[in-house]
Amino acid sequence: MESRFREDVYRSLADIFGTMFFVAVEESGMVVSDYGEGAGVFVEGRVEVSGNGVTDIMLYFPLELARNIAANFMGVSLAELSEETVLDAGREATNMVVGGILSRIDREGRCRLGIPTARMLDGFSPAKELPAADTSLYTTDYGMLFLRCGSLDVCNP
């Protein structure tokens, strides 16, 4: 990931997680190959970005992080959360993060966001399933957050 773009992605993540969820996010020095078999249960949030082409951006939230985001959104305890609420919070968090990235790199609004989706991944293995070149890792108090994103050339004129 090119350094200016990487900075925009990080600022969007830090802004949204800090403002909406009170979760600190830091860039990790680790690489995706450090996470092999069975990293645990994750929530995959995915949203399509379309401009002069189409690409997907994915966020992989450790379940504990997704549950804390959902609890903050709903104003309920962790024990009161349903799986659908956790998935919905994952969708919305992904939507906000990607919207934040577009706000920084696409001020003219050439690109459009699709409708976000989310699914639960049991026994997720980042090293097997995520390409190192397109994946960034971020540390949080609730585990490692993975973001898979290409160059977003689709937003170029």
Binding site: N95, M96, V98, G99, G100, L102, S103, D106, R107, E108, G109, R110, C111, L113
Partner: peptide, 9 residues
């Protein structure tokens, strides 16, 4: 209240 923040939108 939206993530859509481009000037066009």
């Amino acid at each position: 209240i939206t993530t859509e923040g481009g000037e066009k939108t």
